[in-house]
C-alpha cells in the first residue's frame, strides 16, 4: 500500500506533467494560429479559432435552452412532484455526506485529504509550482495574441 506521502509525490508529479502539457499546448495553439496565414495565404491568423468560437456559441445556446428553457430538463424538476422529491433526496444525500465527500477541516477525508497530502509534499516538488506559473503565462500570451485578431474576424459595425 502506498503511503500518504507517496500519494502526494505521485499527485504532484502528475500535476507537474499536466502543467507542462498545458504550457506546450498553449504554445502549440499560438503557433498554429499564426501559421494559418503562413500556410494558407487566403486565411488570416486565428481565423479557424474564431470560426469555431462563434459556432460553439450556437451550440451553447441550444444546450442551455434544452437544459434550462421552459419545459426543458431542469424546468421539469421544479414542476413535477416526483422529480422534485428525487432532487430533494439528491441534495439531502449531498449535504449528509459532505464531510466524507468534500472533506473536513483536518483534511482527513476526500478532496481535502488529497489536497493535504499534495500540500505536505509541495516543498519537495518546486517543479509543480514552476510549471503552474509557466502554464498560466503561456495561457495569457495565447489569449492576448488571439484577441489581437478578434476585431479582424468580427469587424466593428
Amino acid at each position: 500500500m502506498p503511503s500518504a506521502s507517496e500519494l502526494g509525490d505521485v499527485m504532484l508529479q502528475a500535476l507537474t506533467s499536466l502543467f507542462r502539457f498545458l504550457e506546450t499546448f498553449f504554445i502549440y495553439l499560438r503557433y498554429t494560429g499564426n501559421n494559418e496565414t503562413a500556410i494558407n495565404a487566403s486565411r488570416d491568423s486565428y481565423q479557424s479559432f474564431w470560426e469555431i468560437w462563434y459556432q460553439a456559441g450556437g451550440l451553447v445556446k441550444w444546450l442551455t435552452w434544452m437544459f434550462f428553457g421552459k419545459y426543458g430538463y431542469v424546468w421539469n424538476i421544479g414542476n413535477n412532484s416526483t422529480l422534485e422529491s428525487e432532487f430533494a433526496q439528491a441534495v439531502d444525500i449531498l449535504m449528509g455526506n459532505s464531510t466524507a465527500m468534500v472533506g473536513d477541516i483536518h483534511g482527513n477525508n476526500s478532496t481535502a485529504f488529497l489536497l493535504k497530502v499534495a500540500y505536505e509534499r509541495l516543498t519537495s516538488h518546486p517543479d509543480a509550482v514552476y510549471y503552474f506559473w509557466k502554464a498560466v503565462a503561456e495561457m495569457i500570451r495565447l489569449v492576448s495574441d488571439a484577441l489581437r485578431y478578434f476585431p479582424t474576424y468580427f469587424p466593428p459595425g
Binding site: 507517496e6 430538463y73 476526500s110
Partner: peptide, 27 residues
C-alpha cells in the same frame, strides 16, 4: 431527468464511501 438524478444520488454516496476511506488506505 429522473435517471440523471438517480445517478447523482449514487455518485454522492460513492464519493463519500471513497472519501472516508482515503486516510485509512493511505496511512
Amino acid at each position: 431527468t429522473y435517471h440523471a438524478l438517480q445517478m447523482h444520488k449514487w455518485m454522492f454516496r460513492a464519493l463519500a464511501e471513497i472519501g472516508k476511506r482515503l486516510s485509512t488506505i493511505y496511512p
